[in-house]
Design a protein around this nucleic acid. Structure first.
Lengths: 221, 221
DNA sequence: ATTCAAATGTAACAAATGTGACAACTTATT
DNA sequence: AATAAGTTGTCACATTTGTTACATTTGAAT
């Protein structure tokens, strides 16, 4: 068990001996969920750190109108909503749903605090994780502030390409529509626009970037 | 100086004697900015905690197209971007611009870490602040995921009213448009829609809520 | 290879929002 | 009270996105 935990980003840089000591001191549980389970529901109180040790889950935000906006996929090993534990109104901002069997290590807030005071490395790791989360959220915000759908798609494609000129889309247009918060045919249209402008070539999930500088320019349109 | 710092949320619950001890240990600077200064620019590295001790500033996110989306106003005493210091890609997500003369206490990352390890209360305060920030960001995200402008406005008005049935708007339509990320006439239209539906009564900045249950329903439209 | 469910391309039309403009009104200043 | 600067109401029109629908293509299962 402790060897498994050593793999977690939270305990990076902590040696085996120190881990033994830490986990003698603190209390924690393990939990499992089946495929398609609602692991955490939006609004639920968040007073325990949930560490995903196995499986893949997704986070989605339910809007006031009942539509859901997919925020991200989370793969083990990772941690759920680390930035929400120590707030005053500490409620989960999203639903967490498992794609497959998922296992968690659960540590209560008070125990986590003990960990921090007992080991500076763990504290530093945790602070780093929270920072990354906040950055992720503000990237999302900027993304949603892009003017047009075409701009969002261009940004997404360049990010997804990661330097390659040819790649397969990870998500269907349906999923992209959810991710962007728009209707599905609009996504298709945006693809077609970029194609008709000679910026990309799309055929189903296969994408080829023809003019990556034009694709960057499309951010601002 | 130390008495001033005692007022800050970061040092809440720390007694005077302990403060003396802490500030003998760590290094910090003070900084001032005039009216309308660019205190921090988006993308700048964030390796110091900037504590606003006096004045009012605003945070705005510059989109790829050059348009800016106002994120929030910050009043002293508060802290800038606490969640961004400990990340790996630690860059400010926004421009910070002073509305008036603003004073800061600046503490470098390494010194801050010393503080945390030296005093659990300060650590807890800081964690709480980060959590609140993350929650704020994710509220913003949900807000932008609202379907229509009318829904955004309805949400905003109910929040702003805070139980009252009559109040004056804090922001002009121009500012609201910036806040919502839409064009100014659209804001006016949304007001007029709500008025023509008998939900509110608006005359310039004076707003009266006529039917608050209808206003809540408007979230989902 | 065949079959079937899901994903995609695409169209027509409706609705929402952006743009640019201008007059009417408020507010602060003198 | 007069003035000027900024804000708001409002319009016409362009553009974007949503909605619904359906035919086609793909990919997985048999």
């Amino acid at each position: 068990m402790k060897y498994e935990l050593l793999q977690l980003p939270l305990f990076e840089g902590v040696d085996e001996q120190e881990m033994e000591r830490l986990f003698d001191e603190i209390i924690f549980q393990t939990k499992s969920f089946g495929t398609g389970s609602l692991v955490v529901s939006q609004g639920e109180e968040c007073n325990r750190l949930m560490i995903l040790t196995e499986g893949v889950v997704k986070g989605e935000m339910v809007g006031a109108d009942g539509r859901s906006l997919k925020i991200e996929d989370l793969q083990a090993p990772t941690v759920l909503a680390p930035a929400f534990i120590f707030g005053k109104r500490n409620h989960y901002p999203v639903n967490i749903i498992s794609y497959e069997e998922a296992k968690f290590v659960v540590i209560h807030k008070a125990e986590l605090m003990k960990l921090f005071l007992s080991n500076a490395t763990v504290l530093q790791n945790f602070l780093g994780m929270i920072s990354s989360r906040a950055q992720f959220l503000s990237e999302k915000l900027r993304f949603h502030s892009f003017k047009s759908l075409k701009a969002k798609l261009a940004f997404y494609l360049l990010d997804e390409a990661g330097g390659r000129t040819q790649f397969k889309l990870k998500y269907s247009q349906n999923e992209l529509a959810e991710l962007f918060g728009v209707a599905r045919p609009s996504v298709g249209r945006a693809f077609m626009q970029l194609q008709s402008e000679g910026v990309i070539d799309v055929r189903y999930r296969q994408v080829q970037i023809i003019d990556s500088s034009k694709l960057s320019e499309a951010y601002s349109e």
